[in-house]
Amino acid sequence: MLHRPRLRSEFGETSEALFLTASFSYASGEEAEPGFGEPTGRYCYTRVGNPTVHALEERWAQLQGSEAAIATASGMAAVHATLFAMLKAGDRLVASRPLFGSCMWLCTDLLPRFGVEVEFVDAANPAGFAAALGRPAALVLIETPANPTLDLVDIQAVADLAHAAGARLVVDDALASPICQDSLRHGADLVVTSATKHTDGQGRVLGGLIACDRQTRDEVLHPFIKHTGPNLSPFSAWVLLKSLETLELRVLRMAQSALRIASFLQDRGNCAVRYPGLPDDPYQALASRQMHNGGTLLTLRTGGGKQGAFDFLRRLEVIEITNNLGDSRTIATHPATTTHGRLPQAERVAIGIHDDLIRLSVGLEDPDDLIEDLDRALG
């Protein structure tokens, strides 16, 4: 991602230029008229297009290996735009479970209001996907690794089933990033990600990115985003462009530390640990096929229910307690009372979100310091 700027001003800057403007001026009415012709027209209004935002989209497409990409104001804006631009009343959506809490709300509360049928399939149930896709569907949405349980979905297997059913496959790879997982190579048609996570990786800005083919970008997603307005600001795009330059370095270091920490916790023996890169993890074989490494997140169960989890969090001294992930700082989250707190307890437990479950997003600190902090907090 270390390329010279896509578009330079007359000053020859080495960093990408920041075009922090709402609109663009014309010398005459004659110049303005063709300028509004899409997609070949010149820049006219930042909600329609902006050079800094387009530079980010082009870099992201290069990184994902897609024909095109489009940016949104947040990761959830990317998911929302993808679903609502591609679905209509009477369509079927097949979705994996578990999903991030806000994605669940879109599927269980919002889409049905507009006449979209949604069927959920457990991530670990290949036969369930085969059954659900035994009849026509418009779209399939899978989150792999899943938030927060780290369950994996076989992208290639679901892609084959989806395409046979006439559906397109959308993969949410927010917990992996393209450094950990190449979803398009395994059959995904679109990849949505929260750029707030690993792409920024420093807790500064919100952003979302969708990688796809050029026709879908220009004819389906761009009109929806242009007319509904979930656009990424040029400033946030500029921050994300700079972050892309260190994305691979950061994520690879975080994944190495995550494996080391997961191995330590497993050897310690008094907490249940999940990490796709561990040799005995139930998804290790699948992770070795479709991921480049085990990722930057792990989960542990402290025992003692919610109070046990809260006691553990209270004893942490180095690790932050918040609900972000993919950050340069290591973050601990209690999903049952935060990201998935609106789900009924029985439903949370059924998908593996227990009251003592902690999601750990490993950052860039010295792993020895993190291990010491976790060892102390576990008591």
Rank of each mutant, 00 (worst) to 15 (best):
H3G: 13
R8M: 15
S9N: 13
F11S: 15
E13C: 09
E13Q: 13
L20Y: 12
S25Y: 08
A27D: 13
A32N: 10
G35V: 09
F36S: 09
P39A: 05
P39Y: 03
G41L: 09
Y43R: 05
C44Y: 14
C44P: 08
T46E: 10
T46H: 09
R47C: 12
L63K: 03
I70N: 03
H80M: 08
K88H: 09
D91Q: 06
L93S: 07
P98G: 10
C107V: 04
D109V: 11
V116G: 01
F120L: 07
A131H: 09
A131V: 03
A132I: 05
R135Q: 13
P136Q: 15
A138Q: 10
L150N: 01
L152D: 07
I155H: 00
D160I: 02
A167V: 05
A167R: 00
A174D: 06
S177V: 04
S177F: 02
C180D: 08
C180F: 01
L184N: 02
R185L: 11
H186A: 13
D189K: 00
L190D: 04
G201D: 02
Q202P: 02
R204L: 09
R204Y: 08
V205Q: 00
D218W: 08
V220W: 03
L221A: 08
K226L: 06
K226A: 15
H227S: 15
H227W: 12
G229E: 05
N231Y: 10
S233Q: 04
S233P: 02
P234W: 05
W238F: 11
T246Q: 08
L247G: 10
M254R: 01
R260E: 13
D267R: 14
A272T: 10
P276V: 04
D280N: 07
N293H: 07
L298E: 02
L300H: 05
G308F: 09
L313N: 07
R315Q: 11
R315C: 13
L316S: 03
L316G: 07
L316V: 13
I319H: 01
N323H: 06
L325W: 03
R329Q: 06
I331Q: 00
A332H: 00
H334V: 06
T338R: 10
H340A: 09
G352C: 04
L360Q: 01
L364E: 08
D368N: 14
D375A: 14
